[in-house]
Amino acid sequence: MLLLATYASSHEALRAEQILKAAGLQVELIPVPRQVKSSCGFCLLVDVQDHGHLLQESGAKGLWRVKEPEPGQYRRNYEPHL
């Protein structure tokens, strides 16, 4: 499952990227989408598979579910993830 994780600062997002990559997860650092609330401008798209706990440990402040764009659209959508 693809989740978007927000962090308190860009530094934390960068650090979390390293941690999650080292754990073998697919991670992409992206600017925080308009729909997503975060105190920092960058966040991570993470293919968590069954390693959800790693996100908590990486210091994520918020988690969002990712909806891929419909055909002909290019923007992903996001919903809060409990």
Binding site: L14, L29, I30, P31, G41, F42, P69, Y74, R76
Partner: peptide
């Protein structure tokens, strides 16, 4: 970091 972000954002444009 900003450049990576910019290029990602272009793909969503």
């Amino acid at each position: 970091l900003l450049m990576r972000g910019f290029l990602y954002t272009l793909t969503e444009s």
